[in-house]
Amino acid sequence: MFPTPVQKASPWVRHAYTIILPVALIVWLLPLIGVAITSIRPSGDLAAGNYFGIPSRFAGIENYTAVFRDSPIGWYILNSFKVTIPTVIGAVGLACLSGFALAVYKFRANLILFFLFVAGNFIPFQILMVPVRDMTLKAGLYDSISGLVLFHIAFQTGFCTLFMRNFIKSLPFALIESARVEGVSEWRIFRYIVLPLMRPAIAALSVLVFTFIWNDYFWATVLVQGQHAMPVTAGLYSLNGQWIAAWHLVSAGSIVAAMPPVLMFFLMQKHFIAGLTLGATKG
């Protein structure tokens, strides 16, 4: 193991480590802790200049109630779910199919198509912005949830295909081979042999795509204008403009907007990290 485990080090180093560890964490999360504390501060504290001290009283309930009552943030969050969930299903579903095709079959265009998906996944969004916005407008999907969902599904298919293809490649190919010898149709091989084995990959990808899409801000500003389809990232930014200097509300709103992906991460941590680090160990 590297570095040397602290258990093998001198007692002095061991003690130092147990002290430095929590201190480092606090410093690392300082901006976040600050915001969390601000979100439970009464507005009077900010007016009185008590920015960093202990809040004079716990105003968390009134701040968070105010955010939900006086702003459409609840609606924005609902929109975010309406965009995120269909995208996860669509992109992961399409990628299961195309990943299977690229992993299992040998044909001439295979690698070219694979790298097309990989490259597409790395390009800057701005090169797509004008045509995609124009197309969405012409299709009558501008400023709608479905316009956003369709784009996200298509774009995420690149990353998801790369992921699925590599995952299926790591499965034992003999399984497919022997099914073919028995005359099992290609669709049934996919459906009954490969798909059940893809469960961990599907879980990992779903959590990742959920976070990516939930946190998307650029496309939310390009393809949506009005409140009725706006996801929480863009919504929070517009609320920030209204809540000038009402930092206790901005903080509470930020925490609310960050919550779903954070919960997702803590509940599905194993899958999340497995997805994110695929390829960090081999290949």
Partner: peptide, 14 residues
Amino acid sequence: VISQVVVGLIFTWF
């Protein structure tokens, strides 16, 4: 895990 919008707001405050 947090959205860049939230990171941006946090640091603006910071």
